[in-house]
Design a protein around this nucleic acid. Structure first.
Lengths: 205, 205
DNA sequence: GTCTATATTTTGATAGAC
DNA sequence: GTCTATCAAAATATAGAC
């Protein structure tokens, strides 16, 4: 009789390496964007980052929520800083919005997880006390750009909230359909058309 | 020494009534739309519907997923039927789209859970094999309306997918901002402006 | 800083009495 | 068709050894 040979198939024995906080954040961002927050367990994150157990994650973050919070803060901060930069380098509202659109489309191609997490994940479902997008520094800067555009006569005189709604309605829908494959090409391919449609919607004729 | 008095506060002893499948669906829809699928437990549904235990739910639905599936089918079917009706009653693409917009805005005010569930909940997160919105009968009918509008010269000659994207980008963003309070008034208040912006975006000038 | 082991909690789900 | 009781599984989190 043959001896039973127990072959332990070890899926991937990741050499227990030392892990950094940023690695955890990157892995979590990718997973949250792909599968959603609730479908992502700490086990998934631990696997993605190459740990043997989830324990190692707790040295950086006390809870799974805390990971999502940090992620959101980082992304929003970075976005807000980019907007500052854009405002510094451009004077006209049209130029500033144009560059913001440029940034969003570039990110959609190069770092889709960021756009997914920034624009299309309902963070309030798992971050109950997170401020709405509309209460963030980044959003307020965009709103000010629009208000300025109205004052300077570049943008039609409508409620600035509605101008935001129409403009980013088009931009965001385009990005979303690129991300979920409803638009088959890269975001870049649609950028100039989307810009024309969105700007045409709010520009003074 | 005073005697410890255990007062059992019974939050609400719901008189065990008999429950229908439709009551379960209605309660689930409301909860899913409010708190999200993952934040809604069968316990929540059982409470909302007035049962003492979750067991009663299992006579209608084998799994929690099945509730969400049925809900989605029902809503999509009903929406598809409404579109059929609209196409029957109107000839021009502009009229048909106008009535679809009318329906969406009415529903946002009268049954926000339906719009929430139809347009803004990522069902693929908990219904892994659910078809994308873009593969539903309802969506295909809308797409055909747009293609027809292009053929008849009502709508600019662009990719029909892009026309859909711009048009419903504006419409859906408006509805979303009404639902989350970023636009403070009723959907109805914004309907005619949103229609003008959205239609103006795709109409032949 | 990573591991083993385990505690804790929650939730989805089932069996069977009434 | 609703209830009691219970199960099984999964996931978050902790304690302590190495």
């Amino acid at each position: 009789m043959e001896q039973e040979l127990e072959i332990e198939i070890q899926p991937e024995t990741p050499p227990s390496k030392t892990v950094t906080q940023d690695e955890v954040l990157q892995a979590a961002l990718k997973l949250f964007a792909q599968k959603g927050y609730f479908n992502t367990s700490l086990t998934d994150i631990k696997d993605a980052v190459g740990l043997k157990t989830t324990s190692g994650i707790y040295q950086f973050f006390k809870t799974k929520q805390a990971i999502a919070e940090t992620l959101r803060e980082n992304i929003l901060d970075s976005f807000s800083i980019s907007i500052d930069d854009i405002r510094r380098r451009n004077r006209k509202a049209s130029e500033q919005l144009r560059e913001i659109v440029d940034l969003l489309f570039k990110l959609t191609d190069d770092a889709p997880e960021i756009i997914q997490y920034l624009l299309f994940i309902k963070t309030e479902d798992f971050l109950p006390e997170s401020t709405s997008l509309m209460d963030t520094a980044a959003y307020n800067k965009i709103k000010r750009i629009i208000q300025n555009g109205i004052k300077e006569g570049e943008i039609r005189s409508v409620d600035s909230q509605l101008a935001y709604c129409y403009f980013f309605g088009i931009i965001n829908q385009t990005l979303m359909m690129v991300l979920n494959g409803s638009l088959p090409k890269t975001a870049d391919s649609y950028q100039s058309q989307a810009w024309l449609a969105a700007w045409g919607c709010i520009a003074k004729k």
